[in-house]
Simulated assay, not measured.
Amino acid sequence: MKHTKNLILANFNGHLVPTIEAYVLKLSPEIFYHPKLRTLSLYQYILQDAHAFNNCRNLKHLELLQIFAEIGVFNEVISSCPSLEVLILQIIFFNPSGHLKIDHKNLRILSISCNQIDSIEVRATRLDILSIENILCESDKVVLEIPRLPFGRNYWVAGRLFPHTSINISCPPKKNESSGMARPLNNVTFLASLSVSLDLKNPREVEVLRKMLAVWTEKMIELEISFKHNNSLGEEGKSSKGGANNKLWEKAEPFPNADFRVDTIWMHNFSGSSKEQFALASRFVMQKTVMKKMMIKTSSDEKKKKRIEAAVAKLKELPKGNKELSIECF
């Protein structure tokens, strides 16, 4: 294990029963502390303590899949890995009484699925992707301090507890720079909802959104889009005719494809004057993408409000792919 970079430990001895001693993962203290070990995945075990993770500053990627333990053990495991950038949790608590705490300044991707618990706290200043598949916890008992994901919609507010993913699409303008958006979504074959923020003037971010939506095989419950305004794209996003990004909307193909469907779309930071934003909204209206409602957030500024309302009025005049579609401001 001295030179191992990626490690998977999986228990395939039938169904996991928490009382069976054979499923307890017994390891020496600090066994996972190796300078070259970056990725660790554990599948279908019982953790009685967190000693194996002591001083585990080397890990960047941790997956705990179908792992049973006390809440305190999970807290110790997570806090013992301060360098984590990716954390995937499919965990089961023996006792729901307690508080799960995730406080990581380097974390970029977090996915959570768990059984009943009293409360959850997540503090992650660099988090770009949060996926909640299933959490049995009241919304007022969950604290999420994630400045990069300031969305209005989430796992709880849709009224039905479907999986929800929030993503800050952040792509450097240059192709040779890593975007960190390569991880696939897990909920594309289920009824689920999605919140994304992106800059429509960045062609790479638009392409990420297109790919995300195109792989969705089931009708989406909700899609929330928050538009970012970024004028620092550099030459990659520009052209002599007003920007390479404009060409993205000159094509006749549906966005993201002809099959994608969503019940409701929520749009935030819709300026009313952006050609790209209006082009995206009009595509959704005319190509049968939105089944029920398109909700567009207005502004408290009177001039911006009038501009947004004028754009919404134009959207209402477009031929609707679905006659029942309602387009409203909120």
Rank of each mutant, 00 (worst) to 15 (best):
P319C: 12
S232K: 12
S41E: 14
A252H: 13
R153Q: 10
R126M: 11
K228C: 10
H268I: 06
A158M: 04
I117T: 00
F255M: 07
K36I: 03
K141D: 06
P173M: 05
A258H: 11
Y43S: 13
K323S: 14
E133S: 15
V77M: 02
N269Q: 15
E276Y: 05
D140R: 10
P256G: 07
L110Y: 08
G98C: 07
K2H: 15
K2Y: 11
K314V: 08
L161H: 06
L110P: 02
F162I: 11
I109S: 09
I78T: 01
F330M: 01
H34S: 13
P96K: 08
M267K: 00
L62Q: 01
K323R: 13
H15Y: 13
E324A: 14
F151P: 05
L149A: 02
T189A: 10
N202S: 11
D301C: 12
S79Y: 00
V77T: 03
L144N: 05
R126I: 00
F74L: 08
H99Q: 12
L136N: 06
L136R: 01
I265C: 02
E302H: 10
S97K: 15
S139I: 07
R160A: 09
L87E: 10
P150M: 03
W216P: 03
N231T: 14
H104E: 01
Q44Y: 09
T264G: 04
K26I: 12
K320E: 05
I146P: 02
N269T: 09
S326Q: 11
E207T: 11
V196L: 05
V188N: 05
M267F: 03
R261I: 06
P35I: 09
